[in-house]
């Protein structure tokens, strides 16, 4: 009887969005009288940071700091349609809608600035700090604060824009299954190191090294949040979680956090995250959806590592001590 070590690898890809159902999201952007920008949506923030990312996307597109953007979302009396937050679609679909709306608003803003500065709008650029300047002559500039005031009180313009992102629905061909299920794919490769106690069947995940390719890390700290949390959930799925431990038997299902098991703060694997960025052709600033795929590769990587450690295959999830012990006994008997 001994503690045995093993490691395993898995590589995966994951689709962004749900083309097979139709996938629309809309956004509206308008400026306040003093040049702050309101983004109106009906998208839902589940905790992944939808509001923050939409603010950064709008700010980058208009050319203002993020703290000048306000997100008003998920009120159906004001927000235009969003299909919902699922299928790793939120940042990609809503982000594209916000970009389109913000571009339209930016164009009006530049036109008003052009009138104030008596130049062509195409000669103007934003400095990202709240000012609009003439290209090549930065001393000739106007603040976005003053542009918004002018638009509202002097020139009678609405600095606003409408955005829409729609991937047309793909219908699978009946006989061949030809279809376009997604527009872009995120990627990952995970190496897991485990220890397995061959007396108790208990598995300890010592370390996971996760490499994720996500198109573009729009906010690297928030990407890290999702990837670390997702990696934890993947390990949890691999070893602990189920509502029916003896599926298809319906008995013994957990009804609280004492019975439904997940790793606690004392059970964490050493987690390494490496991010690559290959911008997607149609993502907002190249972003893909990382939220779901980040919890997938740990599961097979852990399963393969368990085999590497003790030489038995557990092909049923979760990989519980009971399943490992039964497999070890069967192996010893044969």
């Amino acid at each position: 009887m001994a503690i045995r070590r093993g490691r395993g690898v898995a590589a995966i890809n994951y689709p962004t969005g749900m083309n097979l159902g139709g996938d629309p999201t809309q956004a509206l952007v308008h400026s306040t009288p003093t040049g702050n920008f309101m983004v109106t949506l009906s998208s839902v923030d589940l905790g992944q940071g939808m509001k923050q990312i939409m603010a950064q996307i709008c700010a980058e597109t208009i050319g203002v700091p993020t703290d000048r953007v306000i997100i008003d979302t998920a009120d159906t009396d004001t927000g235009p349609h969003c299909m919902g937050t699922f299928a790793s679609r939120g940042t990609h679909r809503a982000g594209n809608a916000v970009i389109q709306a913000a571009k339209e608003a930016r164009q009006v803003m530049l036109e008003v600035a052009a009138e104030e500065l008596e130049v062509n709008a195409s000669d103007l650029e934003t400095d990202g700090e709240g000012n609009i300047k003439v290209k090549g002559a930065p001393q000739k500039s106007i603040s976005i604060f003053d542009v918004a005031l002018s638009a509202h009180f002097k020139r009678g313009r609405s600095i606003s824009g409408r955005g829409m992102f729609l991937i047309p629905r793909s219908y699978p061909e009946k006989e061949t299954g030809a279809m376009k299920p997604s527009t872009c794919y995120a990627h990952a490769c995970t190496v897991a190191e485990v220890e397995v106690d061959d007396e108790t069947g208990e598995v300890t995940v010592l370390a996971v090294k996760n490499v994720f390719e996500i198109g573009r890390a729009l906010n690297p700290k928030m990407v890290e949040q999702q990837l670390v949390g997702g990696s934890w959930m993947g390990i949890s799925h691999a070893l602990y979680e189920t509502t029916e431990p003896y599926y298809p038997n319906r008995d013994h299902g957990g009804t609280d956090f004492n019975q439904y098991l997940m790793p606690g703060p004392g059970d964490l694997a050493k987690t390494e995250i490496i991010v690559l960025e290959r911008p997607s052709a149609d993502g907002p600033f190249g972003a893909k959806g990382p939220g779901e795929m980040c919890a997938n590769p740990q599961i097979p990587a852990v399963a393969n590592a368990v085999f590497d450690a003790v030489g038995v295959r557990i092909d049923t999830l979760p990989i519980t001590p009971e399943r490992i012990l039964r497999a070890l006994r069967a192996q010893a008997a044969s």
């Binding site: 996307i57 700010a59 991010v275």
Partner: peptide, 26 residues
């Protein structure tokens, strides 16, 4: 987390003002 910018550097425009910045969550 480590961001490996050397991969796919030829197809990516870095150096934006707000995108790619670790802004605090509002």
């Amino acid at each position: 987390m480590e961001l490996r910018k050397d991969y796919f550097a030829d197809v990516r425009k870095d150096g934006l003002h707000e995108i790619g910045q670790p802004r605090p969550r509002l």
